[in-house]
Every structure is written in structure tokens, then in C-alpha cells.
Amino acid sequence: MSPVASVKTLKIDGRDLSGRQEETILDVARQNGIFIPRLCEMEGLSDVGACRMCLVEIKGQNKLLPACVTTVEEGMEVTTNSPRLEHYRRMILELLFTERNHVCSVCVSNGHCEMQMLGQRLGITHVHFPYRYPQEDVDASHDRFVIDHNRCILCTRCVRVCDEIEGAHTWDVMGRGINAKVITDLNEPWGSSETCTSCGKCVHVCPTGVLFEKGRSVAEMLKRRQFLPYLTLMRKENE
């Protein structure tokens, strides 16, 4: 018997589209070239719904739902952009800019940063919340890579890629709330980590300039992510 795939039809921003029942709104939107902002989501990794940038409006639902974890349903009518959504997205991004020290002019990812690009796309010209200016660490103990916590947005892509794709689970999160931070092993220097395989996957999925290769200067850190869809595809075929 051939496998049964249940296909749902739905409307996104007025366009009639279809998606398999296990696909999310974000999947279908992406296939059809509809832009939904997101920071924590990454194709090939599990979804956590943490950044709240991909919240969309669904007709008949008074709650905003994250497009990255909401699966398509028959007859769904999704709005991916509205003044309200834009207002919230801008505020969330502003909050993120105030949280740590995001100084683009000295950042290795300047010009290639997902957060920076999103800020431009959402038309953020200034931040109206006061900045926190926290003192964050930089760990350069690893032979090839550096982590600069000043630029971390806690999207946990590094945690997920290390656990789900590389299988090392070197990264994790410690602390709560505003004091949360990503750590290697049990908060040991990255260079002395016994689990790290130095594969560099975390560096390349990182949306900002937190994780980068040693020797890169301002704007020089380009992230290469081709491995992710390739690995995911190969794994699926082996299943």
C-alpha cells in the first residue's frame, strides 16, 4: 500500500495554498515565498516556538499562534502581516536589542546577521526601551571558535543542532529569565569541553555574531548552512 498523505488546503494572506497535514504554516509559507520573520526556527532542527517573531493571526482564533509549530488545518485563514503583528514584532525585536550588547559596527556578523536584517526589514530606526548594557563574557578558549555572549539572543539553535544533528549535546542553557545563558558542558570553558567534537555546526546555525571562527574580523563571518538540509534529507532517506 502506498503511504497516505493527507493534504489540507488553506489561505495564507488571501492566497489559496495547500500543505501536508504535518507541515506547519511556516513551511507552507516558505514554499510559496511568503515571508514570515523568525529567529529561533531553522529548517532541519526541532521547533521551540521561543522567539515569538513568527506569530500570525488565524481567523476565528483570538490567540496569536506561532507559525513554526502550528500545523496546517483545512480551511484555515492565516494573516502573516498586519499593523498589530508588526507592532508586536517590532517591540519584541527592540526588547532583544536592549537585552545584551548588540553593537553592529564591531560585530563579525555585521551585514550577515539575521537579527540585523530583521531590524531593517521591520523598519526599526531606534529603540525606545532603555538598554541594559550587561557585562557578558567572551570565551575564546576553543582552538578554532569563539563565543561572545554579548550578542546572544538565546534562540538555542546551537543547543539543538549539537544535540539533534551532531549528537554531542555539548551546549545547553543554564540560569533563568534574564540571567539565562548558553553553556558548554557543565559551564566549563569551551576549550576544555570533553564532549565538543569541534564540528562547527553551532557556529554556522547561529543567527547573530555570538559564535564565530577565530581570525574573522568585523563583517567577515559568513555562515554556511548547506549541510543542514543535506544531512536532514540523508537521514530521512535512511529511515
Partner: peptide
């Protein structure tokens, strides 16, 4: 007590 997972609550 915020866990720090989502941005609106954390920041």
C-alpha cells in the same frame, strides 16, 4: 521566575 525561553517574558 521567568524561565527565559521566550523573549517577551524574559526581557
Amino acid at each position: 521566575e521567568s524561565c527565559g525561553k521566550c523573549i517577551p517574558c524574559r526581557v
